[in-house]
């Protein structure tokens, strides 16, 4: 048998042998902690974490043969209307820029739309779509400090004049992009590519996928909230959304239900991007009944 597949099945056996289930605890909170997530909110300390083993992604190319972190620690809470997941994993460096030779840190969580046991962990499959919640450090930096401009990656850049810019020299990105002429020179921004959003307010997006086949697609309806924090060589990221978003591309979650989900992380310093990631197998998951 193919060596990475052998390793993978070994890990599945290890994970299931422990029989760990991620339990989303009921917390009697209003929507605010979900709409403005905080990885350091005190209630997280009251939750029971699950540690899921991470492995390299060797199912499709480009591949990554060994994981960047051995484990991801996951916690979850819900209040009967919203759910939030807190993911924590080791990462020595905070990588929050993208450039020719820079990649961003990130984390994702995948929820199968099909009932438990009917989906592959490889971002779903034909007829078995996944809903994916994806946070990126570069997006959080955009939200905190504004969308990265040329001077963020090249502080000493000397610019004569940009296309569509009314006057010579450099100007802030948003000012330049106010001109239709300038947007024509930045087609991904002009066309609204989801990775080229210069006015981002949430550092994460919801996607849909039906497998490792280039099927990943940003959902039209975005119901996600997220925030991350890097400290002491670890990332802690919270991803939240309403239990029922009303979006057919999202899994309807209900208190008391049992389901499954899996996780992925990207280490920008290691050149992780796209399919080059560390990910976990599907982890059993249940939502505590609301009182």
């Amino acid at each position: 048998m193919h060596l990475p597949l052998l390793l993978l099945f070994g890990l599945v056996a290890a994970a299931s042998a422990r029989g760990q289930t991620l339990s989303a605890h009921y917390v009697p909170l209003d929507a605010a902690p979900f709409e403005r997530p905080d990885p350091d909110a005190p209630f997280w300390a009251e939750t029971e974490p699950v540690a899921a083993p991470l492995m390299g992604q060797a199912i499709t190319t480009p591949s990554k043969f060994s994981p960047e972190a051995p484990l991801i620690e996951a916690r979850a809470v819900h209040n009967g209307a919203w759910i939030a997941f807190r993911l924590e994993w080791a990462d020595d460096t905070k990588n929050e820029r993208v450039n020719k030779d820079e990649y961003t840190d990130g984390a994702a969580l995948a929820l199968p739309l099909a009932p438990k046991g009917a989906t592959s962990p490889f971002m779903g499959g034909p007829g078995a779509p996944m809903e994916i919640l994806h946070w990126k450090a570069v997006w959080q930096r955009d939200v905190e400090h504004g969308y990265a401009d040329v001077t963020d990656t090249h502080p000493n850049a000397a610019i004569a004049q940009y296309h569509g810019s009314p006057t010579s020299g450099d100007h802030p990105l948003r000012e330049v992009m106010a001109s239709e002429e300038a947007r024509l020179a930045s087609p991904a921004i002009r066309l609204g590519n989801p990775v080229s959003q210069i006015t981002r307010t949430v550092p994460a997006e919801q996607l849909a996928a039906v497998g490792f086949t280039g099927s990943l697609t940003t959902q039209k309806q975005q119901d996600i909230r997220a925030w991350g924090r890097h400290a002491d060589g670890k990332w802690a990221v919270v991803l939240a959304r309403p239990l029922n978003t009303g979006d057919p591309q999202d899994k309807v979650l209900e208190p008391g239900m049992e389901h499954e989900l899996n996780f992925a992380v990207w280490n920008g310093a290691a050149g992780d991007v796209g399919a080059r990631k560390s990910y976990s197998m599907l982890v059993p998951f249940k939502l505590e009944a609301a009182p």
Binding site: T153, P187, I189
Partner: peptide, 10 residues
Amino acid sequence: FFNAVTRVSE
């Protein structure tokens, strides 16, 4: 080429 502002390749 990678465009670091649009964050996609061109």
